[in-house]
């Protein structure tokens, strides 16, 4: 299953809940405001670093670019919309709203 998180991890616990529930090796894709979580040194860095021990974590490039997010924790993978579609081809998607 592909877990899609779109809400900001600084104001909402959807990322936290996703990480709590997601099965090992299920990929997590950050979109929209959720991409703000990937900057190093942030309050959610350790949550994402822990998540990356059990999951591949992706961030959507268009949303990163739109928000000027120009630096990322090591290990975060960047995908464009074509990559987003490929993730959905490989896994059933589930959006954490």
């Amino acid at each position: 299953m592909l877990h899609i998180v779109s809400r900001s991890p600084f104001s909402d616990d959807s990322l936290k809940s996703c990480v709590r529930i997601a099965k090992k090796d299920d990929p997590i894709l950050l979109t929209e405001d959720a991409v703000t979580g990937v900057m190093p040194g942030s309050a959610v860095a350790s949550l994402l670093q822990d998540a990356m021990k059990s999951h591949a974590v992706y961030a959507l490039s268009a949303d990163l670019k739109a928000r000027g997010v120009d630096r990322m924790l090591d290990g975060i993978k960047v995908v464009d919309y074509a990559g987003f579609v490929e993730l959905v081809e490989q896994h059933k998607p589930m959006t954490w709203l």
């Binding site: 779109s6 405001d33 074509a82 987003f84 081809e89």
Partner: peptide, 19 residues
């Protein structure tokens, strides 16, 4: 909300891949 834009961009990309 961006949801509508995200949905549209996703659909465009999916159709471009032949889905």
């Amino acid at each position: 909300h961006e949801a509508s834009d995200s949905a549209y961009k996703f659909i465009e990309a999916a159709m471009a891949k032949g889905h």
